[in-house]
Computed example of a mutant assay.
Amino acid sequence: MNILIKSFYRPHLLDRCLRSIYERVSDAKDIEITVLDDGTPQKYLDKIKQKYPQVKFEFSKFRDEKIKKLDYHLQGIEQYHDVRIPTDLWYDAIAKSSDFLIITEDDVWFVDDFNMHLYAQEMEKYNIHLLKLGRILEKDSDIIPHHQLTDTISYHQPHFIIRSKKFYGILLNNTAHIRTFLERCQLLPKRWVMQLWVMYDIPMGMYRKDYLLFLWKDKYKRVIEQLQLKNAVEWAFRHKGKSKYTLMTNRVMATSYRSSASFNAFNIEENFDLIKFNHILNELWLNGQFDEYQNYPNDFSVDYIYNILAEKENTEFAERWKKWTESFIEMHKES
């Protein structure tokens, strides 16, 4: 069995993730845990290795270059900019993994007990291709009804507008602005995209390997949500409803909204320096001055990080971060 963890320059969060695995996953010692790192300086990973000697590491071909760019940014030599994604590293790791696996990220942790081997057996028995471990869909129950499969697993099947891969490709790509037109004219069902998200969940899902590889099957193995959703539609049509998409009745994973590794993808608070923010917490963690389990199993408290930033940097920086994290949460409310 395998757990893969995508990691980039947030060892203070990676520590939280790994600690939760060893405390909450009942069979963790029998699971191969691999960190797929894309740009974390070695001094941080050395501490992770000391704390979790069983963990394996694999590195992207961009890692060394990205570490240099992070250093240049912190020195004020040049602004960090690098949008390359190590999809080949992730894809190859999945390809050589067990038939059922978890792929997650460094800012995700287990909040409840979980027996991975038991649920692999359940997934095999009920032909489950995706078991969501961190989603709560009560707010969408009128749109995506789900039904109990076992005492701890419920399932839901997506409802398609038209059973046409080409049609969904046009919608997801917004070809010729057709989706925009249909939405403006209110000709699409309410929250139709949520039906597709039933079939995909990174980074809080346990997958059948063959299904996950199909989702990421494109020539360049690009991990772009529209592509993965389009592939999920194709899989569903090919298998004619035989695959099951499920979720835990009680969530067992959660994620943080206090940081981001997507430095170039968005910056809600203009000019807020996420790299500098992560650097401050990373250094404190390295020197034993940051509690990676603060407020566990919930997210880090705002006051805890705010006070750190105010003391180590200044109040203005702390205020900018507070505004950033509030906006980050707001942005993900519908996800």
Rank of each mutant, 00 (worst) to 15 (best):
D99G: 11
T315S: 10
D210Q: 14
E326I: 13
V198G: 06
R16Y: 08
D151K: 07
N282C: 05
R208I: 09
E23N: 12
P41L: 00
R258M: 11
H117P: 03
K29N: 13
E23L: 09
L196E: 03
I305D: 00
S7H: 08
A176Q: 09
R63E: 08
D140T: 12
K323G: 06
L14I: 04
I3L: 08
M331R: 15
F317T: 07
F62C: 07
K29C: 11
M194N: 11
I268V: 10
I161V: 04
M253S: 04
R179S: 06
E78S: 13
L74S: 10
I308K: 07
K242A: 06
Y293V: 02
V108R: 00
E124R: 13
N287Q: 13
P41D: 02
R163M: 03
W235I: 10
N2L: 01
I178H: 04
R24D: 09
F277S: 03
R320N: 12
I77D: 05
F237Y: 13
L18Q: 01
T315A: 10
E330G: 01
A265L: 13
P203T: 11
L131R: 02
Y211L: 11
M206P: 01
A265E: 14
F214V: 09
L14A: 01
I31Q: 00
K165L: 11
D88M: 09
Q75R: 15
K29I: 12
N173Y: 12
M204N: 09
I33P: 00
L137N: 15
E334I: 14
W192S: 02
K51G: 07
R222A: 07
H81E: 05
K221E: 11
H147N: 11
I31N: 01
A93S: 12
H159A: 12
L131S: 00
I275M: 04
Q50T: 14
F328Y: 15
E311R: 10
